[in-house]
Simulated assay, not measured.
Amino acid sequence: MSRIRAAVLGSPIEHSLSPVLHRAAYRALGLDDWSYDRFEIDEAALPGFVAGLGPEWAGLSLTMPLKRAVLPLLDGVSDTAASVEAVNTVVRTGDGRLLGDNTDIPGIVAALGERGVGKVPAAAILGAGATASSALAALARICTGEVTAYVRSRARADEMRQWGDRLGVAVRTADWADAAEALAAPLVIATTPAGTTDALAASVPEAPGTLFDVLYEPWPTALAASWADRGGQVVGGLDLLVHQAVLQVERMTGRTPGPLAAMRAAGERALAAR
C-alpha cells in the first residue's frame, strides 16, 4: 500500500502537538494509508525541502519561522493567507501545484464561535507579534467596533495600525504599561509569550468578558486562571491549535467535517502526559 504523506515543519519543532492531532484525525477517519511526521526545518533549508516533495505528499503544516518564508515557493496563496502575508498550511493539488492557506484566522473565529462568541462590539489585543496580526484578521470578521492593541514600542504601534488599515479594522494603540485597562474589554486576545501577562492577573475585573489566551503550555496561565476564578469565559491555545488543525485536515484530505472531538481528546492527553 502506498503511503500518503503530510508533516509539520518548523524550528524548533520537537514539542509540536501537530503530529498528535493529525494522526488522531487519520485514525478517526479510517485513513490507514496516511502518515504525518515532523521535520526540523529552518528558513535556509525550506526551499530544498519543498523542491523535493514528491507526488506522495498531500500537504504541510508550517510553524515559525516559516510562515512568511514559504510564500515565494508556492504556486498560489488564498486571500486569507495573503491578508496577513502568512501561510501555515500548504496543500498539494492533483496537478502538483502547491497552494498556501492560513487556518489560524478561521481557527480563532471557530474557537470563539464554539464558546458562543460571535459578534463583539469591541476588543483588545495584548501584544503585536505575528499572532497579533492573525488575531486582527479574525477580529475583522467578528468585531463591529474598535480594537485596542497594547504594545511596547512605537514601531510595534505603527505596525498594528498599518495591519488594521490593511484588514479594515479600526485599531487604536496603547502603551503596554496601561495593559490592565484592556481587561475591561468584552473580548481580550492575549498573543504574548509565556509569562508576559502574569503581572496582569491581579487586575482582572469583576464579571470579566471573554479571554482568548493563545498559549497552551504552560496552562493555565496566571491570567487565564485569575480570569476563570472571577467567572469569565476562557478560550485557550489548545482550542486554537485544534480548530486550525481540523481545518488543515479537511483541506489536505478532502474529508469534512474533521473529527474535532477526537483531535481535542488526543491533544489533551498529550499535554497531560508532559
Rank of each mutant, 00 (worst) to 15 (best):
Q244K: 14
R152M: 05
T197F: 02
Y150A: 06
E56H: 07
D32H: 12
W34S: 09
T80F: 01
V214E: 11
G96M: 10
T80M: 13
M64S: 13
T80S: 13
A138V: 01
R23T: 15
L211K: 02
L200G: 08
I41C: 15
Y36T: 05
G231T: 02
W219L: 13
F39L: 15
G232K: 05
W227Q: 05
R23D: 07
H243F: 14
A149I: 02
A185P: 00
R27H: 11
S78Y: 11
F49D: 01
P121N: 06
T173S: 08
R251P: 09
A137S: 10
I4T: 14
G231E: 02
A155H: 10
P65G: 07
A224C: 06
L271I: 15
A130S: 15
V90F: 05
L62D: 03
L260G: 04
Y36W: 08
A185F: 00
A222C: 05
T197P: 04
G232C: 04
A266K: 09
L60Y: 02
A111S: 15
T192F: 00
N102Q: 06
A111R: 04
T196E: 13
V109M: 01
Q244W: 12
W176E: 01
R27Q: 15
A138P: 01
A124C: 14
A194H: 08
G76C: 13
R255M: 14
V50S: 00
L167M: 07
G237N: 12
P121I: 02
H22A: 08
V91D: 03
R3S: 12
G231F: 01
E146Q: 12
A224T: 02
S203D: 15
G209N: 04
F49L: 14
L17K: 08
V120S: 00
R5E: 15
F39P: 02
L260F: 15
F39E: 14
T253I: 14
G254L: 14
R115M: 10
E217Q: 14
A138T: 01
A86R: 05
R38T: 08
L53I: 03
V169T: 09
A228I: 01
G116L: 06
A265V: 03
L62W: 05
E114R: 15
G113I: 06
V90A: 09
V171A: 06
Y36A: 09
A25C: 04
F49C: 05
A224G: 12
L215A: 14
R68M: 08
G116C: 10
R38V: 01
G237F: 13
W219D: 10
T148H: 04
P186Q: 03
N102K: 05
L66V: 10
D42W: 12
V214P: 07
L21Q: 12
D165Q: 14
H15V: 06
A207E: 13
D101K: 01
A123N: 02
Y216R: 09
T192G: 00
R161M: 12
S78M: 12
A174D: 11
G145C: 04
A7Q: 10
L126I: 07
V50Y: 02
E146G: 00
G94S: 09
G107H: 07
P12W: 06
N102L: 02
W163D: 04
D75N: 14
A225Y: 04
E181A: 14
V235N: 08
G48I: 01
L9N: 08
A207T: 13
